[in-house]
Computed example of a mutant assay.
Amino acid sequence: MAEKRALNIVKMKKMKQEGNPITMITAYDYPSAKLAEEADIDIILVGDSLGNVVLGYDSTIPVTTDDIVYHTRSVARAAGNTFIVADLPFMTYHGSIDETLRTVRRIMQEGHAHAVKMEGGAEIALQVQSIVQAGVPVLGHIGLTPQSVNQIGGYRVQGKDEQDARRLMEDAKALERAGVFGIVLELVTEEVAEAISKAVSVPTIGIGAGRRVDGQVLVFHDVLKYDSDYREKRFVKTYADIGAEIRQGIAAYVNEVKTRQFPAQEHVFNAEDTVIAGLYGKVKEEAVK
Results as ranks from 00 to 15, higher is better:
Thr60Glu: 07
Glu285Ile: 15
Val46Pro: 02
Lys13Pro: 00
Ala6Arg: 15
Arg5Pro: 03
Gly215Tyr: 00
Asp98Phe: 05
Arg102Phe: 05
Asp164Leu: 01
Gln133Ser: 12
Ala6Lys: 15
Ala78Gly: 04
Val268Ala: 01
Tyr30Ser: 07
Ile207Met: 12
Pro31Arg: 11
Thr100Asp: 06
Ile242Ser: 02
Leu50Lys: 03
Glu110Arg: 14
Val192Arg: 06
Tyr28Met: 03
Glu176Gly: 10
Thr274Asn: 09
Arg260Gln: 11
Ser49Gln: 09
Glu272Trp: 00
Ser74Gly: 07
Ile124Arg: 04
Gly179His: 08
Gly56Tyr: 09
Glu162Asp: 14
Gly182His: 02
Phe235Ile: 10
Asp48Val: 05
Pro146Ser: 08
Asp98Lys: 14
Ala39Asp: 01
Val116Ile: 13
Asp214Thr: 08
Leu35His: 07
Tyr253Glu: 00
Ile131Trp: 08
Val75Leu: 04
Gln248Leu: 08
Asp227Leu: 05
Lys225Leu: 09
Met108Glu: 06
Tyr28Gly: 02
Arg177Leu: 10
Asp171Gly: 04
Lys237Asp: 06
Lys4Asp: 12
Thr72Asp: 03
Ala165Pro: 09
Ala113His: 02
Gln265Thr: 04
Glu256Arg: 00
Leu218Thr: 13
Phe83Trp: 15
Val69Lys: 06
Ala86Thr: 15
Ser197Gly: 09
Asp40Glu: 11
Glu176Tyr: 08
Glu272Val: 03
Val180Asn: 09
Arg177Cys: 04
Ile205Arg: 05
Lys34Phe: 10
Ala178Met: 02
Arg105Leu: 03
Lys16Val: 02
Leu50Gln: 08
Pro137Arg: 03
Asp40Lys: 10
Arg177Glu: 14
Thr259Lys: 00
Asn255Cys: 11
Lys237Val: 09
Ala78Lys: 10
Thr189Glu: 10
Lys4Gly: 12
Val257Lys: 01
Val104Tyr: 02
Gly135Asp: 05
Val202Ser: 04
Gly179Ile: 08
Ile276Pro: 01
Ile205Pro: 08
Ile246Lys: 15
Gly154Val: 09
Val54Gln: 11
Met169Pro: 01
Arg156Phe: 08
Met108Arg: 07
Thr189Asp: 10
Thr274Asp: 12
Val283Cys: 13
Leu45Tyr: 01
Pro263Ser: 06
Ala79Asn: 12
Ile242Gln: 03
Met12His: 00
Glu245Gly: 04
Ala78Leu: 06
Thr274Ile: 11
Ile84Tyr: 06
Asp164Gln: 14
Pro203Arg: 00
Pro21Arg: 05
Gly47Asn: 07
Gly153Phe: 13
Glu110Cys: 12
Gly95Met: 06
Asp58Glu: 15
Glu176Val: 05
Ile61Cys: 07
Val257Pro: 00
Leu168Thr: 08
Tyr253His: 04
Val202Gln: 05
Lys237Gln: 11
Val192Asn: 09
Val254Gly: 05
Asp229His: 12
Val283Ile: 14
Gly243Thr: 11
Ile9Arg: 13
Val223Ile: 15
Ala36Lys: 05
Ala33Tyr: 06
Glu191Met: 07
Ser148Gln: 11
Ile183Phe: 00
Asn150Cys: 04
Asp161Tyr: 10
